[in-house]
C-alpha cells in the first residue's frame, strides 16, 4: 500500500472501529501509527489531548515491545492501566501493511473483559477486510512510515499541521 492509498486504509478501518466503540461502550478509541500520529479517532475525543495521548501511546508501545523482547516474552498482547475513574487499554493492531496501535480509554460503562472481547473481534474483522486481502503484507516498517506521512494530510490535516 502506498501513501496515496492510506486514506483507503483508514476508511476501511473506520467501520470496524466504530462497531468496536459502540459495542464495547468505551469513551474513545484512537488508531495511532508507530510514530505517534493519529490516524483515526472515534468516540468522545473532546477533553483529551489526543495528540499527546497518541505520542505517549506510541512511546509506550515501543518500550513495551523492547521490554517484551528483553524478557523473552515475545509479542505483547495488550497493556492495561486501571485508574479509579478512567481505564486505559493499549494493544497492537496488525494490518497487512504494518502494525498500528489501538488506544482505548473507558470508564465504568465498560470493563477490561468487554474491551478485550471486542478488541479480539476487531482484530478478526480487520484481518478479514476485503481491502487488505489483495495487499502485499510485506511492507517494511520504513516504507510504512513514509506512506503514513504521505497520507496524513488527507486523514488528519490537523495532526499533520501540528507536526
Amino acid at each position: 500500500m502506498r501513501g496515496a492509498e492510506l486514506p483507503q486504509l483508514v476508511d476501511a478501518l473506520r467501520g470496524p472501529i466504530q462497531v468496536f466503540v459502540r459495542e464495547s461502550r468505551v469513551r474513545i478509541a484512537l488508531l495511532v501509527s508507530g510514530a505517534g500520529q493519529v490516524l483515526a479517532q472515534h468516540g468522545f475525543a473532546r477533553g483529551y489531548h489526543v495528540m499527546n495521548v497518541a505520542s505517549l501511546a506510541a512511546a509506550t508501545h515501543a518500550s513495551s515491545h523492547a521490554l517484551a523482547g528483553l524478557a523473552g516474552a515475545g509479542r505483547w498482547e495488550h497493556l492495561y492501566h486501571g485508574g479509579r475513574e478512567r481505564q486505559l487499554f493499549l494493544a497492537p493492531l496488525r494490518t497487512p501493511v504494518g502494525e498500528l496501535i489501538l488506544v482505548v480509554i473507558f470508564d465504568a460503562d465498560s470493563s477490561l473483559g468487554i474491551v478485550r472481547l471486542f478488541y479480539e473481534n476487531l482484530e478478526k474483522e480487520v484481518s478479514a477486510l476485503p481491502a487488505f486481502q489483495d495487499r502485499n503484507a510485506k511492507t517494511d516498517h520504513g516504507s510504512f512510515e513514509r506512506d503514513l506521512e504521505a497520507g496524513l494530510e488527507y486523514t488528519s490535516p490537523e495532526a499533520a499541521s501540528e507536526d
Partner: peptide
C-alpha cells in the same frame, strides 16, 4: 468464576465451543 469489576475469568470449566472471554465479560457486565 469471574472477577466482577473487570469481567475477567478467574477459573473456568467450559464445554468446547463456549467462548470464555465472551461469557466472562458479558455476563459480568
Amino acid at each position: 468464576l469471574v472477577e466482577g469489576e473487570t469481567g475477567v475469568t478467574v477459573i473456568s470449566d467450559l464445554r468446547e465451543g463456549v467462548n470464555e472471554t465472551a461469557v466472562a465479560a458479558l455476563a459480568a457486565s
